[in-house]
């Protein structure tokens, strides 16, 4: 498993955790009847900020842990080269395309909620759901392409 593959796997798991957290909180709000603008927007902010922070810290931590593991396994101080080549870039682009397509479909579905007479809060909730789902599908596609070879 290459460095990029490990990094994407960590990102995939962190996005799944964030989506889980978001859905649990959202269902708690719906059940308690507290689906109001203030609480939904604060949840939205928490989810977006945590997605950004988790992405940054997961990448840094993965880098540090992999360097330590590499040093222990090879018993040398020579740094492992975490290079990214043309295949990594192409896989990244394919993953990004899947993310964009998923998010576009999500925005369309969110707009459709208006057609069915749902309040604007539902639209915002659906947009956040699809933004995280898009990241998950993009990461999953990249992991799949890495596992298959390309």
């Amino acid at each position: 498993m290459s460095y990029q593959e490990k990094n994407i796997t960590v990102s995939l798991f962190s996005h799944v955790l964030i989506l889980g957290f978001y859905l649990v909180k959202l269902f708690q709000m719906v059940q308690s009847g507290g689906l109001v603008a203030n609480s939904l927007f604060s949840l939205w902010a928490i989810v977006i900020v945590s997605t950004i922070l988790v992405n940054i810290f997961a990448s840094i931590l993965t880098n540090i842990i992999l360097s330590i593991v590499h040093a222990i396994r090879t018993r040398s101080s020579e740094e492992e080269q975490f290079i990214s080549d043309e295949r990594d870039n192409l896989i990244g682009l394919k993953g990004m395309r899947i993310s964009y397509i998923t998010f576009s479909i999500g925005v369309l579905i969110a707009m459709l909620t208006f057609v069915f007479g749902q309040p604007p809060l539902v639209m915002f909730a659906v947009i956040v759901f699809f933004s995280i789902t898009a990241e998950i599908l993009g990461d999953a596609a990249q992991v799949y392409l890495y596992r298959r070879g390309f």
């Binding site: 290459s2 990029q4 593959e5 290079i83 080549d85 043309e86 295949r87 990594d88 890495y146 070879g149 390309f150």
Partner: peptide, 10 residues
Amino acid sequence: VGVTRQTIIA
């Protein structure tokens, strides 16, 4: 050639 071993394998 400046790529990863995984790319050579692929």
